[in-house]
Amino acid sequence: MAIREVRRAGLTMPINNPRFVNNSWLRNCDHITLDFEDSVPQSQKPYARIIAREAVGLAGQGGAAINIRINQGFIEADVTAASWPGLSSLSMGHTWSADEVRLMDQYITRIERIRGLRPGSITLGAACDSPVGTVQSEEIVQASPRVKNFGGGGGYDYSMQLGVDMFVGFDQFVYPRGEGALIARAFGKSFGISVHLPDTSGSVADAERSYLQAAANRKAGGRGGGGLHPNVVEPMIRGLTPPPEEVEQARQVLAFYNEQVEAKGEAEGELDGLTVDKYEAARASELIEWAQACAEMDGKKERARREAIARQEAAHTSPGQPTTA
């Protein structure tokens, strides 16, 4: 299993809110989404486009991957305003059709050429957060080779579209989430796994719940997460990073498979009650690689933050006081 990018925890924030954006790089996020869309009022959207280039640079100082969420109705203007060095990806909430994705791809390709960005370096995320998107998802996921992340199938927008309550004690999105995850796997894309945990509060700042959700997602194979409040970043990272005892156990499984199963011409063996075969070995191997990738990402962010702070100190500027993002 190929290791995906490390994007355990991220924050989404309106790009036109300087308090959020200026402090975003101090939050230890693996990724940050600067929003052009729902959280930016119509009257502020032209301003949002003007400040996008600077915001990408600011938010990226801490080593996080930067994504910009664009408006379904302003694809050309938003893609043009957002695509600058330092941008990792563009996403579109409410992806309803493959044509929209193809249009995004066309504009990105043009901008990459004009601005000297490496061709194909800006990836796309599609969120099928409506029944229409779910029905169209097979075509959407194939609409551009830039589509790396595929999501949706639940959450606020889906609830609104279906006219159902979002915070209930059962999983009301089994079908659309399942369909999205299956299509993503069928076409080699990553899908944001979110296993069902009953949530009737809807709090976006509940650290304990965020940890439980992230840990449950990791157990089910999830590797990514995101939220709206700084409180949830550390718990998500902790929940999605394999604890040392699991890494050690994975090393034992792998060693057992290599030395006691494969080397002896067997297909499976038993280690402390666990049937160990090539699938368990592959799972152990992936966990070890994931733990390594997480450690590398943590190191990268630490170095980036130190360097940014040193630059600011050299320029006699303050990194800013932590505030709610």
């Binding site: 989430r177 399942g178 369909e179 299956l182 089910a220």
Partner: peptide
């Protein structure tokens, strides 16, 4: 498709 907190294997019901 790994175990979820409530016992089902993730995605398996679907």
């Amino acid at each position: 498709l790994r175990p979820e907190p409530e016992g089902d294997l993730h995605l398996m019901p679907y």
